[in-house]
Design a protein around this nucleic acid. Structure first.
Lengths: 137, 137
DNA sequence: GTAAACCGTGGAGTGCGCTCCAAGTTCAAG
DNA sequence: CTTGAACTTGGAGCGCACTCCACGGTTTAC
């Protein structure tokens, strides 16, 4: 599969895919004409990459883990270990979120304890540009 | 409270705090000598900022929400809405994590369906530097 | 009084994860 | 044979969230 098709099917830009290849996150053969030729398996792999990334893993971490897998004698065992590790991380993140959630719910009930500044004081912030200085996305 | 104390008590660097002030995330008065003077309330506020940030909210979003609060007629109502919104986001993220979790667990059980490349092929990646090109943190 | 610690500003630099661009192939359709 | 889409490389640039640095003023401790 060439990069355009992979791009369309994965939802990633060509540039992003080329970038991923540069950092070793996806592999590809080259056709005689020099075009990248991706295997079918690149598609689920990219999907996994995006998922892991969205959940807070850096590309470097993901690439690192993939490299661990490749270098491992016992791929199955390494894979299990990696997944177990990721599940633990995911569990920890979920716990954090649950904590924030209840914190939020609790505060939502109890008035207004959350302010960038002391109550009733003139806010220095309001004197600077009314909107945040950095561009909002 | 001056910036050094706030830094130590919050665990944030002075530079980070100054940066937050620049983008309107924290307010401060200035003492006659020009030094920043932060209210006690800056401490829990920074704590909140860090938590929200760690959970995936950008500083711009956090500042934005804080601004919404300030501009609101009915601060209590706005706060409740904001919190409800964040709880929903948190819930969505938790659901995603749960999905990834079960995906991981499932895959961990069933052999090795996760590869950057087709099995057994020479990997183009392996020809480039053996370790990922970008520095790992 | 002087040294050390602390504060200020401005500006440059960093790491990540891309995006955009220019200049040059390759290929398929008409 | 030409047109145009898709591909190649290399390099520049960007947004975010800082960090680091130089240079200078202020405060505190001895």
């Amino acid at each position: 599969m060439r990069i355009g098709e992979l791009s369309e099917r994965s939802g990633l830009s060509r540039d992003a895919i080329r970038f991923y290849e540069r950092i070793g996150l996806v592999g590809s053969h080259r056709s005689p004409n020099g075009y990248r030729d991706f295997p079918e398996s690149a598609l689920p792999w990219l999907h996994y990459v995006r998922t892991a990334q969205r959940l807070g893993f850096s590309l470097a971490e993901i690439a690192d883990h993939a490299a661990d897998l490749r270098d491992s004698d016992d791929a199955a065992a390494a894979l299990s270990a990696l997944f177990a590790e990721k599940v633990a991380i995911v569990d920890a993140r979920m716990a954090e979120l649950a904590a924030l959630r209840s914190e939020l719910v609790e505060r939502a009930g109890t008035g207004c304890p959350l302010r960038p500044d002391a109550p009733g004081t003139a806010r220095a912030v309001a004197d600077s540009p009314p909107k945040p200085v950095l561009p909002l996305r």
